[in-house]
Write a protein that binds this DNA or RNA. Structure first.
Lengths: 230, 230
DNA sequence: GAACTTCTGTAAGCTAGCCGACAGACTGCT
DNA sequence: AGCAGTCTGTCGGCTAGCTTACAGAAGTTC
């Protein structure tokens, strides 16, 4: 968790403003067009930010786990976002009210503030790379990238996920995901038990992913690599 | 230009730090992985930020004209970017050295600083919407959107652009652009004279564009609409 | 354990866009 | 004017992924 990278004294100072919440699948953290009430620091949970078209089709624009915060817009002094951010892998988060975050972290020039500034950079890069990746790369490569990125952000090798969910994330149709997932299964990279996916061959997934996997994770590694461990 | 929206006194204070440059087609403003030396405020020029894959294929992730700045990463205290930003429609810009920008605008809490904070928000939204649009929408719709967005950022109704250039931006193959452009031409929306495009029917272009056109321009309109006019 | 719901795999037909190639149109240079 | 280089339009074969549909497997509810 990002909070773990700040000095102990500062963590103690911020502790009273933080609460721990356990979030379930699909819990919405940020709703587009609505005020952002909290900033979240995922520990075990993983969140997705998706953009939704008028016809209901959705595409993921960014993924956030222990390495980041949900609600970067608050740091940018904005009260709304264009994307919906929701829980994709259930788990724990710390959260802080947006107004408290602004006064105690941003305006107070907390050491955490600098960390988040760096994260906003990484988030921006991540979104830009996603824009290109979504255009250029094929489903199977993107699926490998996505699964490995989630794998890097959860405890253990398995997490709950359904094909339809993957289709929302990748912005493709559900049967296309089934076909791609079947290939990965046949290649021995993953196992699938009704809504639960297990990574069997992490190296293989990485090899099957597009170059964007490395590019994206490098954005976090080069900024937080030494300070932050899962 | 964004600078025009700050109080006159502040503009006078910043004037000594600014220089006017005339940029040509393809001039690079920000090179990925290299230090960002200047922050640019386009007036007549329009810039594109593109992400380049290892195999050389490129996709635009954002577009910047008079409504924004090139080099948002500097504001975020980052010295490099993952995208290349270059001149897509030649014209004038003001520019300021990155270190001066940090001391005289960001740290000095210039009124300009708040404007740019808002722009960073818009830029982030723009990039996220682009990520989804690139995945979902067809070439013709995206071409209409792109042309109209450029049209909104230039003087007059015509600007230089080649099909190959459009293909780089949209992340598609050149002949696909030719086909889409021919349709727009036949529909009477545009005229094409060897590397120079003229918008004949702006409303028609808007109607042919995907919903992302409105969504993106709204991000700027709602933030700068009252303060900034082309 | 029976009925129901949800999730996954698959298939056939279709379409947008890729890919490579090429010819004609235009521009610029000499 | 002539030549070379650049830009645009088009074509034919090809492929990834869409669309719709459906059947079976695995959970869920009563």
């Amino acid at each position: 968790m990002l909070l773990e990278a700040v000095p102990e004294a500062e963590r103690r100072r911020l502790a009273p403003f933080l609460e721990t919440v356990t979030l379930d699948l699909k819990d919405v953290m940020v709703e587009p067009g609505e005020p952002i009430r909290y900033v979240y620091f995922p520990s075990g949970a993983v969140a997705s930010s998706v953009y939704t078209m008028r016809d209901g089709s959705t595409v993921e624009t960014a993924i956030t786990g222990f390495e980041g915060i949900v609600g970067v817009q608050v740091w940018l002094r904005e009260s709304v976002a264009v994307t919906r951010t929701f829980v994709q892998v259930p788990g724990e988060c710390m959260r802080m009210r947006s107004d408290t975050f602004l006064s105690e972290v941003v305006d107070a020039k907390s050491p955490l503030n600098d960390l988040i500034c760096e994260y906003v950079n990484a988030y921006l890069s991540l979104t830009a790379i996603t824009a290109a990746c979504n255009r250029i790369h094929r489903i199977e490569e993107r699926l490998c990238r996505w699964l490995k990125m989630v794998h890097n952000r959860v405890e253990g090798d398995s997490f709950p996920v359904r094909h339809e969910f993957l289709a929302y994330m990748l912005g493709v149709h559900r049967p296309s995901v089934s076909i791609a997932a079947a290939m990965l299964r046949k290649a021995g990279l993953i196992r699938y038990d009704y809504g639960r996916l297990t990574v069997l061959d992490a190296k293989g997934l990485e090899a099957g992913a597009c170059e964007c996997y490395t590019a994206m994770e490098l954005e976090f590694e080069r900024r937080f690599g030494k300070r932050l461990r899962k």
